[in-house]
Amino acid sequence: MKLGVLFSGGKDSLFACWKAMQKEEVVCLITVVSRNPESYMFHTPNIRLAALQAEAAGLPLVEVETAGEEETELLDLERALLAARERYGIEGVVTGAILSVYQATRVQRICRELGLWCFNPLWLADQEAYMEELIDAGFTVVIQGVFSSPFDDSWLGREIDRSTLDELRAIARKYQVTLTGEGGEFETFVTDAPFFAQRIAIEETSKVYRNHNGVLRIERARLVAK
């Protein structure tokens, strides 16, 4: 079955993509770029780098802009899925939803309207096992946004390796934070994945941080050989 993966550039959508590739044919990545930083569904600081990630993965990217208002962005998502069907013949959609009934429900409804299959391979995943598998499988994941206590600006740009995962575990135990960041506590950017032909080298960044809210802006990045 030809599938399009709803893609934010973060670990969940790319891990879901990798899962889907093991069972079906992934023919494109689909991204909705929000102009609203408070976007309900598609908030992510470096979404413009999705094209670089798609190139690293050797997959075409279907990119649709949204003003990022709660209701119209669903129409924009529908527009993106229609474009992916027209251009690449997708029969189904893959998302990286783990716990968010809100996110899963919205996508399910649009898929039903369009007659597309809907797959959520990380649905209700065990957070520990997922994070371990992510590292073991060879994903390189960088923290590109922090949105809750106790994360300070030192977290921006950190790679989630084993020692970072240990620290995240300790934080998850102590604070109301999920290990995966599923509650929006932090956001990630993937620079390498097992199916990437090239990896992304981040060459220049800047940080914006205030009151436990911060983003790492990737100013310059390029593809390099693995």
């Binding site: 069972k23 797959f119 649905w123």
Partner: peptide
């Protein structure tokens, strides 16, 4: 058997 949906509909019940 072993479909992409297995992780979504069977694995959560297994866990």
């Amino acid at each position: 058997d072993g479909s992409l949906s297995r992780d979504e509909f069977v694995a959560p019940v297994e866990r």
